[in-house]
């Protein structure tokens, strides 16, 4: 909701101008060491990273460490509040909410991560091509981005899901689609900047082929802005996907997707508020972790704004 593409675009533009040149010259391994050293100083970012690592582990093994079968009904134990037996309480089927959150981590993170990865890849390629070749390609890519940018992101996602129908795959597509233009724009402007830099001009004059030039010379020069935007997008992707599920346009309500769990809980707000508090808290912590991590990355990569 809040991480609009525009915001990130503007923020990234500011540091690209500074970075690209020194990036080219600097020695790789010492840079990495220095980067890690700098990053580790940012405690909140490290905390964010730690949470992300834990989440990834849970995404992999979550369903095996869940204390209960996340899909098992217990009709004698419906809507029970948190207790020693059920840490996060049970839902309207008597299912253990804690187990469902663990088991749903893979689904929730998977949808957001994969949609951002695919969207970023598409956007990057389109942005590179648009920036490098200009002309018709640039026009097409940029005008399509304009169309997509003409809708606030959740509205765009709702419209897409309305067309494709609800379901997790369609949420993936919707989030992916609104990820593409932001990457396309950033990559285009980064590419334009790198393209005019001295070493690309040299490579070009030496008769370097377009493909090689694009991916060996230009792409690495844009990678920092890519990484930062990528991390920041994940937070908003999780938010968008869970908002869609919350509105009933997302995951199947039987799936333990966090937004869908929260959406179901609305009906029980009066009788079982733990169903609202806890899955929401998990979404919040996850988004926060990615945002803190992304902030840390950006600050580390960009000494200007500190």
């Amino acid at each position: 909701m809040s991480n609009t593409p525009k915001e990130q675009e503007k923020s990234n533009l500011s540091f690209e101008e500074n970075y690209i040149d020194e990036n080219i010259i600097a020695d790789k391994s010492s840079r990495t060491k220095e980067f890690i050293k700098k990053f580790m100083k940012r405690k909140t970012a490290v905390a964010g990273l730690a949470v992300i690592v834990i989440l990834v582990i849970i995404a992999i093994i979550g369903e095996y460490i869940a204390p209960y079968d996340p899909a098992a009904y217990d009709y004698d134990n419906m809507l029970a509040g948190p207790s020693a037996a059920h840490w996060f309480g049970t839902d309207h089927y008597g299912r253990d909410i804690f187990s469902r959150i663990l088991a749903g981590t893979r689904l929730t993170l998977g949808v957001s991560l994969s949609s951002v990865i695919v969207g970023a890849a598409l956007g990057t390629v389109l942005g590179l091509l648009a920036g490098y070749y200009g002309g018709v390609i640039e026009m097409l890519v940029m005008r399509s981005s304009d169309v997509l940018f003409s809708f606030p992101d959740i509205l765009l996602a709702i419209a897409i899901v309305a067309i494709l129908g609800p379901g997790i795959i369609n949420v993936f597509i919707a989030v992916m689609v609104f990820t593409v233009p932001s990457f396309a724009r950033i990559m285009r402007s980064s590419t334009l900047a790198v393209k005019s830099s001295l070493y690309v001009e040299v490579a070009q004059s030496l008769g370097c082929k377009d493909g090689r030039l694009l991916f060996v010379h230009i792409f690495p020069g844009t990678i920092q802005s890519l990484i930062v935007n990528f991390t920041m997008r994940i937070g908003s992707a999780i938010m968008a996907a869970s908002s869609l599920s919350f509105l009933g346009f997302g995951a199947n309500v039987t799936d333990p997707e966090w937004g869908a769990m929260l959406s179901q809980s609305r009906s029980y707000l009066n009788v079982a508020p733990h169903m609202v508090y806890l899955p929401g808290l998990v979404i919040f912590i996850t988004v926060l972790a990615f945002n803190l991590f992304g902030d840390g990355l950006r600050d580390t990569l960009d000494p200007k704004i500190k």
Partner: peptide, 15 residues
Amino acid sequence: DNTSIEMKGAEFVKQ
């Protein structure tokens, strides 16, 4: 239908 109460009923049938 994908409303909460309908889904709950269908889940019960499934079970």
